[in-house]
C-alpha cells in the first residue's frame, strides 16, 4: 500500500515533475514524470516497451496491463494514479506455469536487458504460439494481459464470455478468432491439469 498517494492533494501541477514509485512485476520502478504522463509512457520510459501504444485513446487495447489483477488500458491511466497498485506487464508474465524455451530461441534482436525477460513462457503464451494467435505481434502483449486477467478472474468463463472479453482488444492480423481459441485451449488444459 502507498499511503502518500491517498493523502496528497489530488490536483498536482501538470508540468512539475514528481517522483513516483511503481510496483511493477514485483520490482520497484522509480520514475520522475510530469503528472500528465500516462502509465504506458512511464512504463515504456522505464524500458518496459512490451506495453505498446496502438491508439492512445483506449480502444485498441495494445497497452493493456494488469492493475491489481484487473486489465486496464495503460494509455488511459496516469502514472501517478498507479501508485500503490500492483502492476503487471507482459515482461512479468513468464513467472508461473512456465516452461523453458529451447536453446537459441531468444537470439532475436540482440537488444536485451529489460526486466523479467527470462527465457520462459507461460501456458497462455505457449497457447498463443501453438494456436497461431499472433502474426506481427504488436497487439500480442495487450491480448496476453487481457487473457491473463480473464483466466484468473473467471477461469470457467463460457465461450461467449471469452469472445466478449477478448473483443475489447483489436488484432488486425488474425482478426482475433485464433486468440479466442488459444484462450479456450488454456481453460481446457488448466481444467485437465486440475489447477
Amino acid at each position: 500500500m502507498n499511503e502518500t498517494g491517498s493523502r496528497q492533494d489530488p490536483w498536482l501541477p501538470p508540468l512539475d515533475p514528481v517522483t513516483v514509485e511503481l510496483d511493477v512485476n514485483d520490482s520497484l520502478v522509480t520514475c520522475t514524470v510530469e503528472p500528465r504522463r500516462t502509465l504506458a509512457d512511464a512504463l515504456r520510459g522505464a524500458g518496459l516497451t512490451g506495453t505498446r501504444l496502438g491508439c492512445e485513446h483506449g480502444v485498441c487495447g495494445a497497452c493493456t496491463v494488469l492493475l491489481d489483477g484487473r486489465p486496464v488500458r495503460a494509455c488511459l491511466v496516469l502514472a501517478v494514479q498507479a501508485r500503490g497498485s500492483r502492476i503487471r506487464t507482459v515482461e512479468g508474465l513468464s513467472g508461473e506455469r512456465e516452461e523453458p524455451t529451447g536453446p537459441g530461441e531468444y537470439e532475436g534482436n540482440g537488444e536485451n536487458g529489460e526486466p523479467g525477460g527470462g527465457a520462459r513462457l507461460s501456458d497462455v503464451q505457449r497457447a498463443f504460439r501453438d494456436g497461431g494467435a499472433l502474426q506481427c505481434g504488436f497487439c500480442t502483449p495487450g491480448f496476453l494481459m487481457l487473457a491473463q486477467g480473464l483466466l484468473a478472474d473467471e477461469p470457467d468463463a463460457s465461450a461467449e464470455r471469452v469472445t466478449d472479453v477478448l473483443s475489447s482488444n483489436i488484432c488486425r492480423c488474425t482478426g482475433g478468432v485464433p486468440i479466442v481459441s488459444a484462450v479456450r485451449a488454456v481453460q481446457r488444459a488448466r481444467k485437465e491439469a486440475g489447477s
Binding site: 518496459l48 516497451t49 512490451g50 506495453t51 506487464t89 507482459v90 515482461e91 508474465l93 513468464s94 524455451t101 530461441e105 531468444y106 532475436g108 534482436n109 537488444e111 536485451n112 529489460e114 525477460g117 527465457a119 513462457l121 503464451q125 498463443f128 504460439r129 499472433l134 506481427c136 505481434g137 500480442t140 502483449p141 496476453l144
Partner: peptide, 10 residues
C-alpha cells in the same frame, strides 16, 4: 515468435 510473446521484440 518468442520475442513477440515476451514483449522483447523492438
Amino acid at each position: 515468435v518468442d520475442d513477440l510473446l515476451t514483449g522483447r521484440a523492438r
